[in-house]
Amino acid sequence: MSEFFAMGGYAVYVWPSFLLALIILVANIVAPMRQRKKVITDIARKIRRARKEPT
């Protein structure tokens, strides 16, 4: 099993590229989720404030 991870001596190139791919793929999924959540909480706070002291 260990020789598999050695990747024929190229482990130091193969695994970082797969790892980098994973990081970039995950980052691009997390970013929009967080952005949408941020905007929604922002709107929710505005609604609550507007309801508390109706102009």
């Binding site: 999924i29 970013a31 989720m33 952005q35 949408r36 905007v39 709107i43 929710a44 609604i47």
Partner: peptide, 29 residues
């Protein structure tokens, strides 16, 4: 998947003053 997720975030941002976003936010809250 990701382009639709970003599109939804962008839509909520753009339509933040429209009624349906307000209702949706209340439901989600």
């Amino acid at each position: 998947a990701v382009v639709l997720m970003r599109a939804r975030a962008e839509i909520v941002e753009r339509e933040r003053n429209s009624r349906w976003v307000m209702e949706m936010v209340e439901q989600e809250a």
